Amino acid sequence: MSEQRNHRTDHGDHGDVSAAWEALVATARRTVTDGLVVGTSGNVSVRVGDLVLVTPSGVPYDRLTPDDVTGVDLDGRQVLGTLVPTSELPLHLAVYETTDATAVVHTHAVHATAVSTLVEELPLVHYMAAALGGPVRVAPYATYGSAELARNALRALDGRTGCLLRNHGTLTHGTGLDQAYDRTAQLEWMCRLWLTASSVPHLTPTLLTPDQLTEATEKLRDYGQRA
């Protein structure tokens, strides 16, 4: 597991917090629009210094306004807002405590959740597994919102930026909300791909070898535009 990071002690200025909250709400709404969650399931967080903004518990994302900003410190003490933070707060804080992530996305995506009930690790059906650090593991089941779930997720995330939560959903993190969300979407897509391919009678999907995944990992380092 990654070693514990030294955290900054600032909470950012008002402008930073307002912009981060706006981006968080937009990302949360996107999880609904893209079918990764239903209703108020799933949750999103973003870190601004030592402040963690999180979606509140049980509030439809389309009802959230700038006045609903909800934030806690790294120990989970609420320092902004009056709405109760997401019940999965321990899960989010555990990721921030052990990684350099600045954003976390948790969903109940259908295909990913289905896969979490079938295997211990998502089969290497596509090279985009490299974007998540390697084969995606499934964290053992634990009650939602529990410290046990957070511990299980951290073990599954060791060396990875995403994992599946058994009979529950997905968890991804990144250096920003866009990256964390993209990893969630890629994970759901890979799970759908594997379920589709493995459902064909009398045929078995071919899988990538570790060497092929390593090669893809190296190639992805240079993917995209350069400044």
Rank of each mutant, 00 (worst) to 15 (best):
Q78T: 01
V69Q: 07
R29G: 14
V95H: 05
S87K: 15
P90I: 13
G76W: 04
G81D: 02
L51M: 09
V72P: 05
P85Y: 11
E88N: 08
T86K: 06
T40K: 06
T82D: 15
V37G: 00
L89C: 04
L74I: 09
D75P: 00
P90E: 12
D62T: 10
P66L: 07
T98E: 13
V69C: 13
L93I: 11
H92P: 02
S41L: 11
T65S: 15
G71D: 07
V59Q: 11
Q78V: 04
V72H: 04
P85S: 14
L91F: 00
Y96D: 09
L83P: 01
N43D: 07
S57L: 13
P66H: 08
D67E: 15
P90Q: 12
G35M: 06
V48N: 05
R29F: 01
L53T: 04
V79W: 08
R30A: 13
E88W: 07
G58E: 13
P56A: 06
P60L: 13
L64T: 00
L93P: 03
Y61P: 03
V79Q: 09
T65M: 09
Y61C: 02
V95A: 09
G76K: 11
S45W: 03
L53K: 06
T82Y: 01
D73L: 10
D34M: 13
P90W: 06
P56Q: 11
S41D: 14
S87I: 15
G49T: 08
G81R: 05
G81K: 01
V69F: 00
D75F: 04
S87D: 07
T86V: 05
V37K: 02
V69Y: 00
V32T: 13
L93A: 08
E97M: 08
H92Q: 07
G49L: 08
T98Y: 11
P60T: 10
Y96E: 08
D50C: 13
G35Q: 04
T55V: 12
S87A: 15
V48Q: 00
P90F: 10
N43E: 06
V32M: 10
G58H: 13
G81P: 05
V79G: 09
T82R: 15
G42A: 02
Q78D: 00
D68Q: 11
L36K: 02
T55P: 02
P60V: 08
V84D: 10
D75R: 14
L91G: 04
R29Y: 00
D50P: 02
T33M: 12
D67F: 04
V79L: 10
T99I: 10
Y96F: 15
D62G: 07
V32N: 12
T86D: 04
R30V: 00
G49A: 11
Y96H: 12
V52F: 09
V84E: 15
G81Y: 03
V54F: 08
D73H: 05
L93E: 00
V79C: 12
R47Q: 14
Y96W: 12
D34R: 15
G76M: 10
R47W: 05
D34A: 14
V32W: 09
P66A: 12
P60D: 11
G35P: 01
L83F: 06
